[in-house]
Amino acid sequence: MGTCACLRVRGGIRLSRVQHNKGERSTLMKKYLATACALCMGLGVAQASQITVINSEAASFVGVNSNESLGDPSNVVMNWTFTGGFNANNVHISGNLTEVLTGTFASEADIFATLPSGTLDIDQSSTGNYTGTVAVSTDVSIATPVDPAGNVSFEFYESFNDGAGTDQIWDDITIEFQEIGIQNGMVNLGALPSDGSLVTYSGHNVAGGLDFFDFSIGGPGVGAAGSYLNAQTIDPVTGDTIDTEIGLFDSAGVLVAFDDDGQDFALGGLYSMLSFGVDDPLTGSDTTPGADGATLAAGDYTLVVGGYDTNFEDLTIGVSTLADVIAGTSAGDYDLQLSYVPEPASLMLLGFVGMLGLRRRR
C-alpha cells in the first residue's frame, strides 16, 4: 500500500493510535493510512491563515532614465490610468536597473507618485552600490492606504544625485499597488474516526488570523460511560510557538465552548484544550475530564483556532456565533489534535455484528 502524502507534509493530517501492541501494528497502520488518505481527499488543499495580496493593479514601463533630484525639470514623468476600487497599503517595485554613473546606488532610484487623492513618495530600498545591471524587487508600505483609481503620474528621480545627467536606467520596471490583508484558514477534516484515533493537523496562525476546522462526529455522540471528544492544540516543537485560544461552534454557528490555556502546562503551557465526556483520558493536570460538558450531540461542528486575545463571545446579545469571533494577535505554529469515542457499547455491537458477518462468509 502506498503512503499518502498527508502523512509526510506539514499542513496535512496524521492519524495515530494512542496505544497498540506490536501484533496489531500492521493491521492498524493499514486502517489508519486508508482513513488518512480518505480525509486528505476530502480536504482538497489544506489552507492555514496567511497574509496575502487581496487586490492589486500594476503599471509597467521600459527604458526609463533616473536622472536628478526630485522636482528637477529633466526628470522623466510617466503616466498610467488605474481602475482602482481598493485601498492599497503596499507598493511592490520590481525590475532591472543598469548603472550609468560609477558609484551610484540602486536604492537611490526612487519614484514620486501623484494620485487623484494625493501624493506618495515611493522610497524603494534595494541593493546599494553595484556594477552592470541589477534585479530589483522590494516593497514599500503605505501608512495611510490609498485608492489608485484614475490617472497617476510617476516622476523618476535620484534621492542622492551622483552627477549631472542620468545616474541609472530602469531597463524595465513594474509598479504594483497592492492591498495586503489576512486570509483565514479553512480546513475540512470530515468525519472523525470513532475509535479514539488522533486526527492531527499541523497549522500556523498569522497575527490577526483565524483557522476554521469543520468536522463531524457520528452517533450517538458523547454522554455514555467511556465516550468523549477531546480537542487540543500542542507545541509542534518547531521553535515558532504561539499562545492559542480555541472555540467550538455547532452546525448553527453557535458557540458551544472555548478555552485559552487548558492544555497541560508541562506540554507547553500556552496551548488550549476542550474536553467533553467525564471519561476523557487525554486531559492533563490543567483540565478536568468533561470540563466543557458531560455530553455532546452527534453532528457537524467548527473548531476555530486563534492567537492570544481572540474573543469568542459577544456579551451584548447573549448568544455568541461564528460571526462574533475577533482574532487575537499572537502568531506561530501549533498542532491540533482531535480524538473521539462514542458510546463504547455501540462500538462493541458493531464489532460483534462484523464478526458474525465474517463467520457467515467463511
Results as ranks from 00 to 15, higher is better:
residue 7 L to P: 05
residue 27 T to G: 09
residue 27 T to V: 12
residue 27 T to K: 13
residue 34 A to Q: 14
residue 42 G to R: 11
residue 42 G to M: 03
residue 44 G to I: 05
residue 49 S to N: 06
residue 54 I to A: 05
residue 62 V to P: 02
residue 67 N to T: 11
residue 76 V to R: 04
residue 81 T to C: 09
residue 84 G to I: 00
residue 93 I to H: 04
residue 95 G to L: 04
residue 96 N to P: 03
residue 98 T to G: 08
residue 101 L to E: 02
residue 102 T to H: 04
residue 104 T to P: 08
residue 104 T to N: 01
residue 108 E to C: 13
residue 110 D to M: 12
residue 115 L to S: 10
residue 118 G to W: 04
residue 130 Y to V: 09
residue 134 V to E: 07
residue 141 S to A: 15
residue 145 P to D: 09
residue 148 P to G: 04
residue 153 S to G: 00
residue 153 S to T: 15
residue 163 G to Y: 00
residue 178 Q to M: 12
residue 179 E to V: 09
residue 180 I to D: 02
residue 182 I to W: 00
residue 184 N to P: 11
residue 192 L to S: 01
residue 204 H to S: 15
residue 217 I to S: 02
residue 225 A to C: 00
residue 226 G to R: 01
residue 230 N to V: 04
residue 243 D to E: 12
residue 256 V to Q: 03
residue 263 Q to E: 15
residue 275 S to R: 04
residue 277 G to Q: 00
residue 284 G to V: 05
residue 285 S to E: 11
residue 294 A to I: 12
residue 296 L to V: 08
residue 299 G to K: 07
residue 302 T to P: 06
residue 307 G to T: 10
residue 308 Y to L: 14
residue 311 N to E: 15
residue 312 F to Q: 01
residue 315 L to C: 07
residue 318 G to F: 08
residue 319 V to M: 14
residue 323 A to L: 11
residue 323 A to H: 08
residue 326 I to K: 10
residue 330 S to L: 03
residue 330 S to P: 03
residue 334 Y to N: 07
residue 335 D to W: 01
